[in-house]
């Protein structure tokens, strides 16, 4: 049992992120203020997502690619596109590390 904070690390797995969607084994809950919780039904672990990570997760649910999700973040927050893109990639990387995503 336990809540896991998503670590910020980067690997080259991200290269394939455009083919990834949220796993069916993951249940997402929206909280007020834009944050959210994921439950991995395989590991029975909770993952607390901040607002940015929730934007990424929602983007993946809608089938968006890295660039489109980064555009969403730029539209919502005062952040440059290249920084937003790097953030999206880092978050996707973490989702992958925790096996929260599956191939389309």
């Amino acid at each position: 049992m336990g809540q896991t904070a998503l670590r910020i690390t980067r690997t080259d797995k991200i290269m394939n992120s455009n083919n990834l969607i949220p796993g069916k084994h993951v249940v997402v809950t929206d909280f007020d203020g834009g944050e959210g919780i994921l439950v991995d039904l395989n590991t029975k672990k909770y993952f607390q997502l901040n607002e940015t990570a929730m934007v990424v997760w929602k983007g993946l649910e809608q089938g968006k690619n890295v660039g489109q999700i980064a555009d969403d973040i730029v539209a919502r927050y005062e952040v440059a596109l290249d920084n937003a893109t790097r953030s999206v990639e880092r978050i996707l990387d973490n989702f992958q590390n925790y096996k929260l995503l599956t191939a389309k």
Binding site: V28, T29, F31, Y46
Partner: peptide, 13 residues
């Protein structure tokens, strides 16, 4: 089941 898991999430957090 999914609704239940979301309810657990709210309680837990």
């Amino acid at each position: 089941f999914d609704r239940l898991v979301r309810a657990f999430s709210r309680c837990y957090m």
